[in-house]
Write a protein that binds this DNA or RNA. Structure first.
Lengths: 364, 364
DNA sequence: CTGAAAGCGCTTACAG
DNA sequence: CTGAAAGCGCTTACAG
């Protein structure tokens, strides 16, 4: 539509030097006479020159763009993580190309979509693909795996303690005097969710309580689907006084089902905090994932790899925050790392112990 | 790390033809002997060839990648729109590069970040930048503006009827017998929100009710900030029996403030639906934006432009859905285009009249 | 129907 | 300190 963009050759001509020299000036590094340098910079400014990253990438074989593979943006946590990754990339002047795999689908397709461009690295949120496949990708270019169920032997990961979180949530409910506690998840094949389930079961067992299969509901991935499923399950939960929802998207459905059966006195604790959790019936206590930190960590670790860091796989575990909105316990103060819960949390929040982010080195 | 990727030259060599011929086969179009074509395709398959989009882009001056500029992914509506845009792009084999501008910031920075690569087109979600600037961008390359406050004279837009929505929400509250209705927004400078405010005011006036400034709260952009602000405002709302929150992120804060002052009987209607809205106190009625349709429309309109459609600016208005969760009105059935509200909506939802998407042609 | 050649915008040894 | 030249992987007139 408008005229051709200005190119390095234009700048060089305007400055009266060769493109080689212009390139050296603009990229820094090699020694250039100050007089030439000044003329080049002036010309670049006047002409509004911006280098063409694709051309550079083609020539050098390196690309500064990174790829971000996300299962589904509609999952609030993933959107928040993506947001943090993009922000971190931008502050480094790096572009982010996105691919999605679709809820519950393997990220393999998304990764392949990005593999055709030579992105500098990959952040992969959600690890459903087979280990063999990830091995391949992880060795092809710098990669960081986020929300993996467990550390990958040879790829950097940013995780959360799903098992410990499940256990902590359940222990809290037990501490509140509950002995009949239901579990709600999406699908047992979702590995992070299954680890939360294991934590739930472990807490029960440790307290001498039975793990009763009829109190464990796998409600599916969709919001509508979960609601439907929980409607039929809740009536069977006769002695139940508390529930742990291990997946954010099932929580609304559980509350609807509870309301329909007049069971609003059930105490509910869920994985992932929601702004509205303070004003639902029942109120929602939560183990909050710090999406900001997760995303920022992932981006930073990736950049270190891109910059050439040559170390065995590193694994960072971002701490969870317990937000207790049950009416029983006293107020203990607002945790500072809580993802913006609104001041409502001031009165309603109890924070669990804080674990500093743990960085383990493994022998790759 | 591993060996060089296979290139078109590799394929050509393996097939015993020139790169010209290989290129013709793989791109279709030009006539090629069937025998050669077969050999090329086989070679490509065997070697796992994938073309390098950057190289093609450099050569042709065209790029299939599109840019997506979003104010902030943490805003649920924007994340859902982005999701739909990405999905539409993927189904066309097109990559999406993302830039964010940060909450409340102009998208100008984000656009500039993408301008250095020659993306085929741009979807810009949120229109804070000056018209002059957008004019420039919109004439440089195909662009679609989403969530603009009003149709842009010369750029394709996908909007929602903010004014009508504000009016409709308020009218519904008036129909329920309310005469003292508060308004909650973020900032008057947020143009879409201001249009909702105008609709609110218009509905009041049309009903012979006064627009009372002390019932209009501009609570700011952040969740925490809004809560804090509403805490101080709500006590002054003595006769108020209903409220319209024009911004999703202010809603949690309003409910917290209402709860703290024992005002849970206030009827609340908000812009943008939330899954938990069915189980809050008070329950949340909503004007739901159909993020899926918005995103898909934007992507499709952009592709039409990229494919060379040469028409004056087009403007699509995606209809809003009224979700009435107040206890008063009878059940009328679930609107089919509602963005997955969960089956909870079955019992709690009343849908307003449906307007088919309107496509207006303007003389750009 | 096919290939040799030029060129997209850049970087980088290589000579000077 | 500087420029001419080659080349990254592709496409596309141009000849044949």
């Amino acid at each position: 539509m408008t005229s051709r963009r200005t190119t390095l050759a234009d700048v060089a001509t305007a400055a009266g030097v060769s493109t080689s020299t212009a390139s050296r000036v603009l990229n820094g590094g090699a020694a250039v006479a100050e007089a030439s340098a000044v003329r080049v910079r002036e010309a670049a400014a006047t002409l509004g020159y911006r280098l063409n990253p694709q051309a550079r990438s083609l020539r050098t074989g390196r690309d500064t763009t990174i790829g971000l593979v996300v299962e589904d943006f509609n999952i609030a946590l993933f959107a928040r993580i993506a947001s943090a990754v993009v922000a971190a990339a931008e502050s480094r002047g790096v572009h982010v190309v996105i691919a999605t795999s679709g809820t519950g689908a393997s990220e393999q397709r998304g990764i392949e979509a990005l593999a055709s461009r030579n992105v500098a690295g990959l952040v992969v949120v959600e690890g459903r693909a087979g280990t063999a496949y990830l091995d391949h990708v992880g060795h092809t270019r710098p990669t960081v795996l986020v929300d993996a169920a467990r550390p990958h032997p040879s790829i950097d990961t940013v995780t959360v303690d799903n098992h410990g979180g499940g256990r902590q949530a359940t222990e809290r409910l037990i501490a509140h005097g509950h002995t009949s506690i239901a579990f709600v998840g999406s699908e047992p094949s979702a590995k992070t969710v299954y680890r939360r389930y294991e934590g739930y079961a472990e807490a029960l067992t440790a307290a001498g309580l039975p793990v009763r299969p009829e109190l464990v509901a796998w409600a599916g991935l969709g919001v509508a689907e979960a609601t439907e499923s929980l409607r039929t399950v809740v009536p069977g939960w006769q002695g139940v006084t508390a529930a742990f929802t291990a997946v954010e998207r099932t929580t609304a459905g559980l509350l609807v089902a509870l309301a329909e059966h007049g069971r609003q006195s059930v105490e509910v604790m869920c994985f992932d905090d929601m702004d509205l959790g303070a004003v639902t019936v029942p109120p929602l206590s939560a183990l909050a994932q710090d999406a900001d930190t997760i995303g920022r960590c992932a981006a930073e670790m990736l950049f270190e790899r891109i910059d050439g860091l040559d170390l065995p796989a590193r694994h960072v575990q971002v701490p969870l925050q317990l937000v207790d909105r049950s009416t029983a316990p006293p107020h203990v103060g607002r945790p500072t790392t809580l993802p913006e819960p609104g001041r409502a949390a001031d009165r309603l929040t109890t924070s669990g112990p804080r674990h500093p982010a743990r960085l383990r080195q493994e022998e790759g």
